[in-house]
């Protein structure tokens, strides 16, 4: 009697199913979040109501509970959720569905035989949202919203290792705004920021989904192009250059034109690390600056 009250009073989901996957118990929390009353679902095979649950991992977990009394855990990190419930979180709609952390274990009868299993569902949407925000802050540049230098270094090493292992390739484009100091000195820092944002958003729109754009330093950017050879990367880089050059940028009453200098390089197996490749791109960029700016220089 008392236990039944707790069952419906606690702020966490509990459901019980039998060895045939029929729902035996569906607590109040489950009713609220699923929109199904216990009467609707009692005795019904859970896969009839939630067909996506019928997957390898879920079945394997049930089997391990029934056959040797194991406990199983479904983390939010990998599984996101077990049952698709609408999120009621007030922290915005980062996720389409409520993020869940779930556990599963055996229930025994008086002879210690495992007859049922319980599933406990916890709503971790808020925690997952905060975590997502923290992660974003960690890898993104606050001003431009593109990836930051820290993430460039991580990604570069990852890509370097991947190419080494699978004998694949990638290219790296490094570019820098020409005479950016003049922009800041003449029109002020807000205008400089405006130009940085403009460049970020134009280049972001120009790259493929698989490419990554990073703000490397003050007015310096990097673009990583997986599975791309040097010739192709040079063409892409020149498109960047032409696009930025052609823009008439309106800031307050001023119209500004800016240009970028670009260095391009490709992964080669002889490189010792991702940083080596970065150095080569930097060298190419330096040459582009030395030889007149607003141009693309490649280095193999």
């Amino acid at each position: 009697m008392i236990l039944d009250q707790i069952f419906d009073a606690i702020n966490t989901g509990i459901l019980i199913i039998d060895t045939e996957f029929r729902v035996i118990k569906w607590n109040r929390w489950m009713e609220i979040h699923s929109g199904l009353s216990e009467d609707d679902i009692k005795g019904v095979n859970i896969f009839d109501k939630y067909p996506d649950l019928d997957n390898t991992k879920f079945r394997r977990s049930c089997k391990s509970v029934f056959s040797f009394g194991n406990f199983s855990f479904f983390s939010q990190k990998l599984h996101r959720y077990l049952l698709p419930f609408t999120s009621k979180s007030l922290l915005g709609n980062q996720f389409e569905f409520m993020q869940q952390s779930c556990s599963m274990g055996p229930l025994r009868d008086e002879n210690n035989e495992i007859k049922y299993l319980f599933i406990n569902i916890e709503d971790v949407t808020d925690v997952a949202t905060y975590e997502h925000k923290l992660l974003e802050m960690n890898i993104k540049d606050g001003l431009t919203g593109i990836y930051n230098r820290r993430f460039l270094e991580t990604k570069l090493e990852e890509e370097y290792k991947r190419c080494k292992r699978y004998k694949s390739t990638f290219s790296l484009i490094m570019f820098d705004l020409d005479h950016f100091k003049n922009v800041n000195d003449t029109y002020g820092h807000p205008c400089g920021d405006f130009i940085l944002k403009m460049v970020s958003s134009r280049i972001s729109a120009a790259i493929r989904n698989v490419d990554f754009l990073f703000r490397y330093g003050g007015e310096e950017f990097c673009c990583l192009l997986p599975e791309t050879k040097l010739d192709a990367a040079v063409l892409v880089a020149d498109r960047f250059r032409a696009d930025i050059e052609s823009q008439n940028n309106v800031f307050e009453e001023h119209v500004l034109n800016v240009t970028i200098s670009i260095g391009v390089t490709e992964f080669i197996a002889e490189c010792e690390s991702g940083v080596d490749i970065l150095k080569k791109a930097d060298e190419a960029l330096y040459t582009a600056k030395k030889t007149g700016r607003n141009r693309v220089i490649s280095l193999r």
Binding site: N55, T56, K57, S64, G69, N70, F73, K77, L78, F151
Partner: peptide, 29 residues
């Protein structure tokens, strides 16, 4: 496992550690 789509940055590590967790959990259990 069938649910390996929709993974974000750093997901290879997550998948690896989650796999160890699952196998570990079953083996220990």
């Amino acid at each position: 496992n069938d649910e390996q789509g929709s993974l974000e940055a750093g997901s290879a590590e997550i998948l690896e550690s989650e796999t160890l967790l699952e196998v570990g959990n079953i083996l220990i259990g």
